[in-house]
């Protein structure tokens, strides 16, 4: 046949096997394809395929960025270079602290002003987003301040249209990762270890310590991002 007329479910299977770069490009094919690619459920499927293949990458961040100005992703099994992407010029002077990454989106902050500016980046589609001065309960986060805080980063798929529009940070993942106010009435936990958060099933978990008299109890804090 000259042209194929593949049913929609086969098109979806084919698209789910394509890398993010090709998906970004093929949004230009027609509106139907764009809608499939931008569908949050679609984003979950290729992600599951990727994880089932067990592909993991290490991120190489050059310390001296006068000579090297690119991040490099290395495959964790072979140490082959998988992808190199340029660090945007405004980040070149920064001391990176990578907070976490999730679904291919990386969250990092400047060590000199921990938490006051957060940067999100998706290397495979080369999109960056900066969140400046996240405010929690009216208190601006800054390293010098009196407020103890921890940062967590993760992804929640929201179904609420309005919410999605404001918190969507990249093309083909409907990622909700806005730094929302998290009001906690009673917060007895004394220390939360920074950078120790783990994301599972839309829940961010932190390790914390709870002081009960003289006894210190380690606990796990969980925060559900989808329903704050």
């Amino acid at each position: 046949m000259d042209t194929t007329d593949l049913p929609l479910h086969i098109i979806i299977v084919l698209l789910s096997m394509l890398p993010a770069e090709a998906l970004a490009k093929f949004q230009g094919i027609c509106k139907d394809w764009k809608n499939i690619i931008r569908e949050p459920q679609f984003v979950k499927e290729p992600f599951q395929i990727q994880t089932s293949k067990g592909k993991d990458y290490l991120l190489y961040v050059p310390l001296d960025r006068t000579n090297e100005s690119a991040f490099t992703l290395l495959c964790d099994e072979t140490f082959d270079q998988a992808l190199e992407f340029e660090i945007p010029s405004e980040f070149r002077d920064m001391s990176f602290i990578i907070i976490s990454s999730c679904n291919g989106v990386m969250c990092f902050t400047d060590a000199n002003s921990f938490g006051s500016t957060l940067n999100l980046c998706n290397p495979s589609i080369r999109k960056y987003k900066t969140v400046t001065n996240p405010i929690f309960d009216g208190v601006e986060l800054s390293y010098q301040g009196d407020v103890d805080f921890a940062l967590g980063f993760g992804i929640a798929i929201l179904s609420d249209e309005e919410d999605e529009a404001t918190s969507k940070i990249e093309v083909c993942s409907m990622v909700a990762s806005s730094w929302k106010n998290l009001e906690v009435d009673y917060f007895p936990w004394e220390i939360i270890e920074l950078k120790l958060e783990v994301l599972m099933r839309d829940l961010v978990h932190w390790k914390g310590n709870y002081r009960n008299g003289d006894e210190r109890i380690s606990i796990i804090l969980a925060y559900h991002m989808g329903e704050d």
Binding site: T3, T4, I11, K25, F26, G28, I29, C30, K31, D32
Partner: peptide, 14 residues
């Protein structure tokens, strides 16, 4: 994009 449209018989509706 053009190749894929041709091969899949997709009309550009943009």
């Amino acid at each position: 994009v053009g190749w894929v449209r041709r091969k899949f018989g997709i009309e550009n509706d943009y």
